[in-house]
Amino acid sequence: MNIFRLSGDLSHLLAVIILVLKIWTTRSCAGISGKSQILFAIVYVTRYLDLVTTFVSVYNTSMKVIFIGASFATIYLMYSKFKATYDHNHDSFRIEFLLAPTVILALLINQKFTVLEVLWTFSIYLESVAILPQLFMVSKTGEAESITSHYLFALGSYRGLYLLNWIYRYYAEDHYELIAIVSGIVQTVLYCDFFYLYITKVLKGKKLQLPA
């Protein structure tokens, strides 16, 4: 565990907590893409299947349980409790365009052709693009509430911090995992445009609004 990995995890944790609290306290999920949330639930479940096979640490297990739990709580709030506030019309990204290629890629490019390994690889590939329905929704409506921007910033920073963690581990521990690194770079790059807007607008107290 190094400082980059820890900050990455905390940033990730902060993101999922912000999201649940935002929906819970405002009693609304307006502006949030249910499709991205479904993809994240698939990511967590397929990646953390090792909860039942391998024990790494209490920290590791707790975080996995929290991510799966928060993800399902978010889906419950969006599709059941506060269903009426869910903005279907703007959440029109076709997730099969992300699911099909990531399934195929995981079957073709993986470290080992076993069920757990292919599912883990699939979850890494899917996570790298899972935010696209959300970013698509923001670009469609042309704006995002500041709390949604904070969520996106924390969620985007997490994989960026993991990239620093992987650079560190490559030198300090001789450890690297190419599949995760390449996907992590893709994932972080997808947020670049958003990061720019977040820093130039939201941090200056303005609403995140895309130029017309």
Partner: peptide, 10 residues
């Protein structure tokens, strides 16, 4: 380089 799969990350 060590490329053994150790899934100790989240």
């Amino acid at each position: 380089k060590n490329t053994i799969i150790v899934k100790d990350e989240l």
